[in-house]
Protein backbone atom coordinates (compact mmCIF):
# COMPACT_ATOMS: atom_id res chain seq x y z
CA UNK A 1 0.00 0.00 0.00
CA UNK A 2 1.40 3.38 -1.03
CA UNK A 3 1.21 6.41 1.24
CA UNK A 4 2.38 9.94 0.50
CA UNK A 5 3.86 11.82 3.44
CA UNK A 6 3.20 15.55 3.01
CA UNK A 7 5.38 17.85 5.05
CA UNK A 8 3.83 21.11 6.17
CA UNK A 9 5.86 23.63 8.09
CA UNK A 10 6.57 27.29 8.62
CA UNK A 11 9.11 28.28 6.00
CA UNK A 12 12.53 29.45 7.06
CA UNK A 13 15.60 30.73 5.28
CA UNK A 14 19.31 30.98 6.01
CA UNK A 15 18.62 34.53 7.27
CA UNK A 16 15.90 33.50 9.74
CA UNK A 17 17.24 30.10 10.79
CA UNK A 18 21.00 30.39 10.43
CA UNK A 19 23.32 28.21 8.39
CA UNK A 20 23.94 25.67 11.12
CA UNK A 21 20.22 24.89 11.52
CA UNK A 22 19.79 24.47 7.74
CA UNK A 23 22.82 22.17 7.57
CA UNK A 24 21.51 20.12 10.51
CA UNK A 25 18.13 19.77 8.76
CA UNK A 26 19.84 18.57 5.57
CA UNK A 27 21.87 16.00 7.50
CA UNK A 28 18.72 14.71 9.17
CA UNK A 29 16.95 14.41 5.79
CA UNK A 30 19.91 12.57 4.26
CA UNK A 31 19.88 10.08 7.09
CA UNK A 32 16.08 9.67 6.97
CA UNK A 33 16.12 9.02 3.22
CA UNK A 34 18.94 6.47 3.60
CA UNK A 35 16.98 4.68 6.33
CA UNK A 36 13.81 4.56 4.18
CA UNK A 37 15.87 3.28 1.24
CA UNK A 38 17.63 0.61 3.30
CA UNK A 39 14.26 -0.58 4.65
CA UNK A 40 13.09 -1.03 1.05
CA UNK A 41 10.02 1.19 1.50
CA UNK A 42 11.08 4.35 -0.37
CA UNK A 43 9.36 5.06 -3.70
CA UNK A 44 10.37 8.69 -4.18
CA UNK A 45 10.44 12.14 -2.69
CA UNK A 46 11.04 15.80 -3.26
CA UNK A 47 11.86 18.83 -1.17
CA UNK A 48 10.24 21.98 -2.60
CA UNK A 49 11.55 25.51 -2.88
CA UNK A 50 9.90 28.09 -0.67
CA UNK A 51 6.37 29.20 -1.59
CA UNK A 52 7.81 32.62 -2.54
CA UNK A 53 8.74 30.91 -5.80
CA UNK A 54 5.40 29.24 -6.41
CA UNK A 55 2.93 30.06 -9.20
CA UNK A 56 -0.69 29.00 -9.44
CA UNK A 57 -2.75 28.49 -12.60
CA UNK A 58 -6.51 28.15 -12.88
CA UNK A 59 -8.54 27.99 -16.09
CA UNK A 60 -11.99 29.59 -16.05
CA UNK A 61 -14.07 29.55 -19.24
CA UNK A 62 -11.01 28.78 -21.32
CA UNK A 63 -8.89 31.58 -19.87
CA UNK A 64 -5.82 30.75 -17.82
CA UNK A 65 -5.37 32.84 -14.72
CA UNK A 66 -1.75 32.75 -13.69
CA UNK A 67 -0.84 34.15 -10.28
CA UNK A 68 2.19 34.39 -8.11
CA UNK A 69 1.96 32.90 -4.64
CA UNK A 70 0.72 29.65 -3.14
CA UNK A 71 -2.73 28.05 -3.43
CA UNK A 72 -3.48 28.75 0.21
CA UNK A 73 -1.79 31.67 1.91
CA UNK A 74 -1.27 30.00 5.27
CA UNK A 75 1.49 30.25 7.83
CA UNK A 76 2.48 26.60 7.29
CA UNK A 77 3.20 25.63 3.69
CA UNK A 78 3.66 22.35 1.85
CA UNK A 79 7.43 21.93 1.85
CA UNK A 80 7.94 18.47 0.40
CA UNK A 81 6.66 14.95 -0.08
CA UNK A 82 7.92 11.42 0.29
CA UNK A 83 6.16 8.38 -1.13
CA UNK A 84 6.52 5.08 0.70
CA UNK A 85 5.16 1.58 0.15
CA UNK A 86 4.35 -0.16 3.44
CA UNK A 87 1.81 -2.79 4.58
CA UNK A 88 -0.59 -0.59 6.55
CA UNK A 89 -1.34 2.73 8.26
CA UNK A 90 0.51 1.78 11.45
CA UNK A 91 3.71 1.29 9.47
CA UNK A 92 3.15 4.62 7.69
CA UNK A 93 2.57 6.37 11.03
CA UNK A 94 5.79 4.88 12.33
CA UNK A 95 7.77 6.29 9.38
CA UNK A 96 6.01 9.67 9.64
CA UNK A 97 6.91 9.86 13.32
CA UNK A 98 10.58 9.41 12.41
CA UNK A 99 10.59 12.12 9.70
CA UNK A 100 12.79 15.10 10.65
CA UNK A 101 9.97 17.41 9.50
CA UNK A 102 7.78 16.04 12.31
CA UNK A 103 10.14 17.90 14.67
CA UNK A 104 9.50 21.32 13.15
CA UNK A 105 6.14 20.94 11.41
CA UNK A 106 3.31 18.54 10.64
CA UNK A 107 3.44 15.34 8.62
CA UNK A 108 0.22 14.41 6.81
CA UNK A 109 -0.23 10.80 5.70
CA UNK A 110 -2.41 10.21 2.64
CA UNK A 111 -3.12 6.74 1.29
CA UNK A 112 -2.50 6.60 -2.46
CA UNK A 113 -5.51 5.82 -4.64
CA UNK A 114 -3.79 5.38 -8.00
CA UNK A 115 -0.29 5.99 -9.35
CA UNK A 116 1.49 6.09 -12.69
CA UNK A 117 3.52 3.28 -14.19
CA UNK A 118 4.97 4.09 -17.63
CA UNK A 119 2.39 6.81 -18.18
CA UNK A 120 -0.58 4.63 -17.21
CA UNK A 121 -2.66 4.96 -14.03
CA UNK A 122 -2.71 1.77 -12.06
Amino acid sequence: MRYTLLFHYQEGSVETLGEEVIAEGKRAMTSYAATLHAAGVLIGGEVLHSSELTTTVRVTEGVAHVQDGPYADTKEQLGGTIIIDVPDLDAAIDWARRAPQAQWGTVEIRPGASHLVEGVWT
Partner: peptide, 10 residues
Protein backbone atom coordinates in the same frame (compact mmCIF):
# COMPACT_ATOMS: atom_id res chain seq x y z
CA UNK B 1 -10.72 0.08 4.79
CA UNK B 2 -9.17 2.72 2.56
CA UNK B 3 -6.42 4.06 4.81
CA UNK B 4 -5.76 0.41 5.72
CA UNK B 5 -5.85 0.49 9.50
CA UNK B 6 -4.39 -2.90 10.40
CA UNK B 7 -6.26 -5.59 12.35
CA UNK B 8 -3.43 -6.23 14.77
CA UNK B 9 -2.84 -6.01 18.48
CA UNK B 10 -0.08 -3.44 19.06
Amino acid sequence: KQARIPFTVP
